[in-house]
């Protein structure tokens, strides 16, 4: 029961919802950049929401399916195909043993998530299967996937051996998750609340932060996005002692170009933080490619909490309806 990696793609790694509770030891959280897409991809194959998936970046891998399985692909559209036929995303897909899964190129977004029913058979380290690339631990041998890797997966709760595939190498139901609610098109709007050192910045810097666009630079990865726009300046150049930072903290180093810290961010930092991206909008950043621009929108904490809870309610409703639809479809 496995997926065999023929070509690894640009950066494909095993990620779940990350390691929680180890930041005090300097251990980063890791985990999916777009946690919503990961959770939905798991719901679509009947897994626990936080099961590990393949996080696929821009140029996807080529994978040989070595047993009948139920998969799902969500997140950015990297043009997945199975035996050269387009595979729909945001749906459960039954795949025949021997099929070849490819990604033909990035159409929209930046990161796709591939889940398999049963989950990947990978040991947890510090309560998570996520790959911690820099420390070389977790995931598949602590690294991004390479050609020749064989990813075993666990027995799914439903036996899929006797499935017949009338045409081609895969089948899927008519229904799908409306991706528009999770992958808004157009110019990305990123909402934030004031960062811990917001008041340290000059008024004109605070104004330009929301009025101007910021371009995501090529030096952007899972650790953080470096963005450029009008240089942000401090009122006084005081020293700040290192303190905890978190996913979404927007730090401003002395050169004035902000860094949005993301899944693989260090646990502590000493640069002043102008902003903190709201949790509900972190998945939106994860789908922005280098070279694209983002617009920041200032909200207050109450609004951030309301948006967070609203998203969670939406995901919970989705989970209930997917679970019913999936059961019905698999029993046919």
């Amino acid at each position: 029961m496995s997926l065999r990696v023929i070509k690894p793609g640009l950066l494909t790694s095993i990620q779940d919802l990350g390691r929680k509770g180890f930041k005090q030891h300097g251990v980063i959280v890791s985990g999916a950049m777009d946690a919503h897409s990961l959770r939905i991809a798991n719901m679509l194959v009947g897994n626990e929401e936080g099961e590990a998936a393949l996080e696929i970046t821009l140029m996807g891998p080529t994978i040989k399916v070595e047993k009948n399985c139920l998969i799902s692909i969500t997140g950015g559209n990297l043009s997945p195909t199975l035996d050269n036929k387009v595979v729909p995303m945001w749906k459960p897909i039954l795949v025949k043993n021997g099929s070849i899964l490819r990604f033909e190129g990035c159409k929209s977004g930046c990161r796709a998530y591939l889940t398999v029913a049963g989950g990947f058979a990978i040991p947890e380290i510090m309560e998570s299967k996520s790959t911690y690339l820099r420390a070389g631990i977790g995931g598949y041998m602590g690294r991004a996937l390479k050609a020749g890797d064989v990813l075993e997966f666990n027995e799914p709760s439903k036996n899929l051996d006797d499935r017949t595939f009338f045409k081609g190498s895969f089948s899927f139901p008519k229904w799908f998750v409306n991706e528009k609610e999770f992958m808004p098109g157009g110019k990305p709007h990123i909402r934030f609340i004031d960062g811990s050192q917001y008041e340290y910045f000059t008024d004109s810097s605070k104004d330009s932060f929301v009025e101007r666009l910021f371009k995501v630079s090529n030096q952007s990865d899972r650790m953080g996005y470096r963005i450029s726009g009008p240089a942000l300046k401090l009122k006084d150049n005081g020293e700040l002692l290192s303190e905890a930072v978190t996913n979404g903290s927007v730090q401003v180093p002395p050169d004035g170009n902000p860094i949005i810290l993301l899944s693989d961010s260090q646990t502590t930092g000493g640069y002043p933080k102008i902003a903190q991206v709201i949790t509900a909008d972190l998945p939106i950043i994860a789908q922005v490619k280098p070279g694209e621009s983002i617009q920041f929108l200032r909200v207050n904490l109450k609004e951030a909490e309301r948006l967070f809870l609203q998203k969670e309610r939406q995901l919970n409703e989705l989970k209930v309806s997917i679970s019913l639809a999936l059961k019905k479809w698999l029993d046919i």
């Binding site: 929680k20 509770g21 180890f22 930041k23 005090q24 002692l241 290192s242 303190e243 905890a244 978190t246 646990t267 502590t268 949790t279 909490e305 967070f308 809870l309 969670e312």
Partner: peptide
């Protein structure tokens, strides 16, 4: 409560807002 991270001048407490809610 998820965890707390000590620093030189402060302690940051991480929590799950959904559980709290």
């Amino acid at each position: 409560f998820i965890e707390c991270v000590p620093a030189y001048t402060n302690l940051t407490v991480f929590y799950d807002p959904l559980v709290i809610y």
